[in-house]
Lab assay of single mutants.
Amino acid sequence: MASQGTKRSYEQMETDGERQNATEIRASVGKMIGGIGRFYIQMCTELKLSDYEGRLIQNSLTIERMVLSAFDERRNKYLEEHPSAGKDPKKTGGPIYRRVNGKWMRELILYDKEEIRRIWRQANNGDDATAGLTHMMIWHSNLNDATYQRTRALVRTGMDPRMCSLMQGSTLPRRSGAAGAAVKGVGTMVMELVRMIKRGINDRNFWRGENGRKTRIAYERMCNILKGKFQTAAQKAMMDQVRESRNPGNAEFEDLTFLARSALILRGSVAHKSCLPACVYGPAVASGYDFEREGYSLVGIDPFRLLQNSQVYSLIRPNENPAHKSQLVWMACHSAAFEDLRVLSFIKGTKVLPRGKLSTRGVQIASNENMETMESSTLELRSRYWAIRTRSGGNTNQQRASAGQISIQPTFSVQRNLPFDRTTIMAAFNGNTEGRTSDMRTEIIRMMESARPEDVSFQGRGVFELSDEKAASPIVPSFDMSNEGSYFFGDNAEEYDN
Rank of each mutant, 00 (worst) to 15 (best):
S3N: 10
Q4V: 04
T6D: 00
K7T: 05
K7I: 08
R8H: 00
Y10W: 05
Y10F: 14
G17M: 05
G17R: 15
G17C: 10
Q20P: 13
N21E: 00
K31N: 09
K31Y: 07
G34E: 11
G35P: 01
G37W: 11
F39M: 09
F39V: 15
Y40H: 15
Q42M: 12
M43Y: 04
M43E: 09
L47G: 01
S50F: 01
G54F: 08
G54C: 10
L56D: 04
I57P: 00
E64F: 08
R65W: 10
R65E: 02
M66Q: 08
F71G: 02
F71P: 01
D72V: 13
R75D: 07
E81M: 02
S84W: 08
D88T: 00
D88A: 02
P89F: 02
R99V: 05
R106V: 10
L108Q: 05
I116M: 11
R117K: 05
R121M: 11
N125W: 00
T130N: 06
T130V: 08
L133K: 15
A146N: 06
T147S: 09
R150K: 11
T151K: 13
V155W: 04
M159V: 11
M159W: 04
P161G: 10
L166R: 01
R175P: 04
S176M: 04
G177A: 14
G177R: 10
A179E: 09
G180H: 03
A181D: 12
A181W: 13
A181L: 12
A182E: 09
K184E: 11
K184P: 02
T188H: 11
K198S: 08
R199N: 12
G200Q: 05
I201Q: 15
N202Y: 09
N202L: 05
R204W: 10
R204Y: 01
R208P: 00
T215S: 11
R216G: 10
R216Y: 07
I217G: 15
R221N: 08
N224K: 13
L226H: 12
K229C: 07
Q231K: 10
T232H: 11
Q235P: 07
K236R: 15
V242Y: 11
S245G: 14
N247K: 06
G249W: 10
E254H: 06
L256Y: 01
T257V: 15
A263P: 10
L264Y: 04
L266D: 04
G268Y: 03
V270I: 14
A271L: 00
C275R: 04
P277T: 14
A286Y: 05
S287F: 01
R293S: 09
Y296L: 01
S297K: 01
S297F: 13
S310R: 06
V312R: 00
S314N: 09
L315D: 01
P318F: 06
E320H: 02
P322Y: 02
S326F: 03
S326I: 08
L328S: 09
V329L: 15
C333Q: 05
A336L: 05
F338T: 04
V343L: 15
L344H: 03
L344Q: 04
I347G: 03
I347S: 06
V352C: 15
L353I: 11
L358D: 05
S359W: 04
T360R: 01
T360C: 12
R361D: 02
V363Q: 02
N368R: 11
M371Q: 14
M374W: 04
M374E: 04
S376T: 08
T378E: 02
E380I: 02
A387C: 14
I388P: 02
T390L: 02
G394A: 09
N395D: 07
N395P: 05
N395R: 12
T396I: 00
Q398K: 14
R400M: 11
S402M: 02
A403M: 13
A403W: 00
I406D: 00
S407H: 03
P410V: 04
N417Q: 13
P419F: 04
F420H: 15
D421S: 05
D421F: 08
T423E: 00
T424E: 02
I425K: 01
M426G: 02
A428V: 15
F429L: 13
G431E: 07
R436C: 01
R436H: 03
R441G: 07
E443F: 08
E443I: 08
I444S: 11
I444Q: 06
I444A: 09
I445E: 01
I445N: 00
M447W: 06
M447K: 13
E449M: 10
E449C: 08
E449F: 05
S450W: 02
P453H: 10
V456I: 13
V456P: 00
F458K: 01
R461F: 01
R461N: 05
F464T: 06
F464L: 10
K470S: 05
A471T: 14
P474A: 12
G485R: 07
F488G: 02
F488C: 09
G490H: 05
N492T: 13
E495C: 04
Y496V: 14
D497Q: 02
D497V: 11
N498R: 15
